[in-house]
Simulated scan of single mutants.
Amino acid sequence: MGTWDIGPVNDDTTADFHACLDATAEADRPGLVRDALVRVLGSDDPSGRHVVVEAVAAAALVAAQYPGGRPVTSPYGPDLPVPALPVGLRELAVLALDRVDAKASEASLLREPWATTDRYLQWRRRLYLLRRVLAFPTPQPVTRSWARIDGWMQRHAPASYALLAPPADPAEVEAAQEAMGVRFPADLLHSLACHDGLTEWANVVPDQPPMSVAGILDHWQMCVEIAAEESDPSGPHGHEEPWWHPQWIPWAQSDGDSQIIDMREGPGQGRLGSTAHDDRAHFDDGWPSLAVYLTAVADALDNGGNVDGDTPYLTTGGELWWTSTGRTELNGSPLTVAPRTETETDTAPPQ
């Protein structure tokens, strides 16, 4: 049966799959990845453990080629580079992971190998993060996403739209970058050129509300001062994130918890993560960029859906309110699921 670990590619069966991949001609490797994904979609054999393991390993190879995906560097991984995989494998990989983790009784047999391990919940967390990368939307320009968000709020939540601040002063943006010693990424510059945060607190996006340039600078300075006694800004064990790092930009914040943009050098530069007032920062369930995050927000408003489990609702006062999917009230008052943006399909008369 081979050994088992919580990572998506830490398994002897996975090593065998990758060895087969290495031995295959480069032009034929995408087909091998596709075959592994297809096999699990048609499998209901609980003894076919290798089918499940190979599908997850194949999905990890697909995810590694997208923003936010981790390179497969495990000793169980392939030795040779994986060529660019067809775009269509992304959706297929999502379906395969859903098949593995399905709650339906017919598919639950497929995950039985994992359910018998002591670290099943940890493995499912890894599976969730892997699927999350594959489901990230293709980012639109930040200005386009804000235009969609603005348009939706103007139509459906004008009270919330009125709380969006006008564009930031470019001189103030430049002064903040000089004071922080950190250059803002293009995504943040474009966002501030749309709105300099909010005029007062409002739940206009999931997680924390965006801050003004002044708020970004003030919160950054406060965190740098608090973290000044931290002797190792890279974390005590080299791989754990610290509570704060001077190369992080807090673009959104509430009650001391902030959504941060990582501007440290490296492949993760520009990604979004979270840091709490009483805990270390983390990026595992963050976003590849601010552009991807705002695209997801605009998509949820226009098309319905949620952003990491938060769904847009309208309060009785007509304000936009993001909260856990399935909630029906806020402080005793009913919540209404936010309407989607009308499309030509929605409004077209019957033929």
Rank of each mutant, 00 (worst) to 15 (best):
Ala157Ile: 07
Arg132Ile: 05
Gly286Phe: 02
Gly268Met: 03
Gly332Gln: 07
Val213His: 06
Pro86Met: 00
Pro349Asp: 01
Ile261Leu: 09
Glu230Cys: 10
Ile216Pro: 05
Asp150Gln: 12
Asp232Glu: 13
Asp232Pro: 07
Met153Ala: 09
Ala55Ile: 00
Leu95Ala: 11
Ala276Tyr: 14
Leu163Ser: 07
Gln247Pro: 09
Arg327Glu: 14
Leu192Cys: 03
Thr315Tyr: 01
Val40Gly: 00
Ile260Cys: 07
Pro75Glu: 00
Pro166Trp: 09
Trp243Ala: 12
Leu89Thr: 00
Asp255Glu: 15
Pro334Lys: 10
Asp22Glu: 01
His156Val: 07
Ser105Glu: 09
Val133Thr: 11
Gly238Asn: 04
Thr73Tyr: 06
Glu225Ala: 15
Ile216Leu: 13
Pro67Trp: 04
Gly151Asp: 02
Thr341Met: 05
Ser289Cys: 07
Asp302Ser: 13
Ala165Cys: 09
Ala162Pro: 09
Arg340Tyr: 04
Ala107Lys: 11
Gly88Glu: 12
Thr199Val: 12
His50Ala: 15
Gln154Phe: 14
Pro246Gln: 04
Trp220Gly: 08
Ala298Thr: 03
Trp201Tyr: 13
Gly197Thr: 02
Ala96Asn: 00
Ser254Tyr: 14
Ser160Gln: 01
Ala64Arg: 03
Pro30Val: 00
Leu189Lys: 06
His245Met: 05
Asp255His: 14
Asp101Ala: 15
Arg183Tyr: 06
Val56Gly: 09
His237Val: 10
Val337His: 06
Gly332Cys: 08
Val297Thr: 02
Val182Ser: 04
Val33Ala: 08
Glu106Ala: 14
Gln140His: 12
Gln351Lys: 12
Cys20Thr: 15
His239Tyr: 14
Arg99Asn: 09
Thr143Tyr: 05
Val173Glu: 07
Ala281Thr: 04
Asp262Trp: 03
Arg29Cys: 08
Pro8Ser: 07
Arg99Glu: 06
Cys20Ser: 15
Asn303His: 14
Thr336Arg: 11
Pro137Asn: 02
Tyr66Val: 01
Pro75Tyr: 00
Val100Lys: 03
Gln177Asn: 08
Ala348Thr: 12
Ile216Tyr: 06
Glu342Arg: 15
Asp28Ser: 13
Leu335Cys: 05
Leu95Met: 08
Gly309Met: 10
Gly2Thr: 13
His18Cys: 13
Arg327Phe: 08
His219Ala: 13
Glu342Pro: 11
Val40Trp: 00
Glu178Phe: 14
Asp5Gly: 15
Glu229Val: 10
Ser47His: 13
Ala60Glu: 02
Leu188Ser: 09
Gly77His: 06
Ala84Pro: 03
Pro209Gly: 04
Ala300Phe: 08
Ile6Ala: 14
Ile249His: 00
Glu112Asn: 09
Trp220Asp: 04
Trp322Cys: 06
His245Cys: 05
Pro30Phe: 00
Ala338Asp: 06
Leu163Ala: 07
Pro71His: 03
Leu41His: 00
Ala36Met: 00
Tyr128Trp: 14
Ala162Phe: 06
Asp257Val: 07
Pro210Asp: 03
Thr295Ile: 08
Ala171Ile: 12
Gly68Val: 01
Gly197Gln: 04
Gly69Lys: 05
Thr73Gly: 10
Pro206Thr: 03
Trp146Arg: 02
Thr347Ala: 11
Ala228Phe: 02
Leu294Gln: 02
Ala60Phe: 01
Gly309Thr: 08
Asn306Val: 13
Thr275His: 03
Pro75Phe: 01
Ala58His: 02
Glu240Asp: 14
Pro141Trp: 01
